[in-house]
């Protein structure tokens, strides 16, 4: 009984250790680049086999090597697609999405080699090549994903400056409320500029604008330029109102900039999934068609 207790305590201590030992590192370097090593090995291995083995009349998907590569490739594609489920299923167990992502990335890349060798470089305008082409597109979008995942998080974090998205939006509406009150004593012409800036829906913009961050002279900037440059105000009490509006417009412009940058980085981090995932579904369909037709016409 006593020893039972002890081992339970020790087990707990061990699992705690394991939990904390979960090393701090990116999915790319998971477990000392384990999946990179495996993926390189698989690719080199099959490439060597492909070059060394003499298949008659020539390499194609129907040879024994072709079938082997095809089966491995199809299995991989299905498994890679399952990441979408793994990620969303928070059931108990000793899994980690980070390990899955690591394997997904490297095995996914090795699929270029496996899938292409499977074709035996016999490409044409048919459903088989469609499956191959879709696979390449999915992998290409994945490569884009890896690159933004490794470059953008740092920028996203720097731009955030400890603010949550809601706080950014709240801060903007606080500035807007103050602007509205501050602009009341201004001349008609100036007030109109401020109102135009306030009425402009800052969240309505096109995909291209969102992704590139390029936009023309927005009303806030116009109003700021108008009030800053068109007039040279004296330093008397009457101009205190303009001074205040100018400061507020400046703050509004900076706040807008932060929000837009935030949305831009988020969009760049997410946009590829809108290609990667639907293409994966299409790939699965094309793959099914490819396999069915191959066996049907056998």
């Amino acid at each position: 009984m006593a020893s039972l207790f002890k081992s339970a305590g020790e087990r707990r201590a061990q699992s705690r250790e394991r939990r904390h030992a979960a090393e701090h590192g990116s999915f790319l370097e998971y477990a000392g680049y384990r999946w990179l090593k495996i993926a390189v090995f698989i690719s080199v291995f099959f490439l060597t086999v492909y070059l060394l083995v003499d298949v008659e009349p020539r390499h194609n998907g129907g040879s024994w090597l072709g079938y082997t590569l095809g089966t491995i490739g199809a299995g991989l594609i299905v498994w890679l697609a399952l990441l979408g489920i793994r990620k969303r299923r928070a059931n108990p167990g000793n899994w980690s999405v980070k390990a899955w992502t690591s394997a997904h990335v490297y095995l996914g890349l090795s699929l270029v080699v496996i899938g292409t060798l499977h074709t035996g470089f016999q490409l044409g305008w048919n459903v088989h090549t469609l499956a191959w082409a879709l696979m390449v597109l999915v992998i290409a979008s994945g490569i884009y994903g890896i690159s933004v995942y490794s470059m953008l998080p740092e920028k996203l974090s720097e731009n955030r400056r400890e603010m949550t998205r809601e706080q950014m939006v709240e801060s903007l509406s606080a500035i807007d409320r103050q602007l509205e009150a501050a602009a009341l004593p201004l001349a008609r012409e100036d007030t109109d500029m401020v109102i135009a800036a306030l009425e402009h829906d800052v969240f309505k913009e096109g995909l291209w604008q969102r992704l590139t961050g390029r936009r023309g002279r927005a009303p806030t900037r116009r109003a700021l330029e108008h009030i800053s440059t068109k007039r040279a105000y004296a330093d008397d009490a009457d101009d205190a109102a303009q001074q205040k509006v100018r400061t507020l417009l400046g703050r509004r412009s900076a706040q807008l900039d932060q929000i837009r940058k935030h949305m831009r980085y988020k969009a760049l981090l997410e946009i590829w999934l809108y290609v990667h995932v639907p293409l994966t579904i299409a790939l699965l369909a094309a793959l099914a068609a490819h396999i069915l037709s191959v066996f049907y016409y056998w």
């Binding site: 699992s15 394991r18 939990r19 904390h20 979960a22 701090h24 590192g25 990116s26 999915f27 998971y30 990620k87 928070a90 108990p92 167990g93 000793n94 899994w95 980690s96 999405v97 980070k98 899955w100 992502t101 995942y149 998080p153």
Partner: peptide, 21 residues
Amino acid sequence: GVTGGPACVRACPTGAAIRVS
């Protein structure tokens, strides 16, 4: 009591989330 430990860490796809003492 959940096998595998904190779900927040297990579910992080990039390895950003860590629990430390």
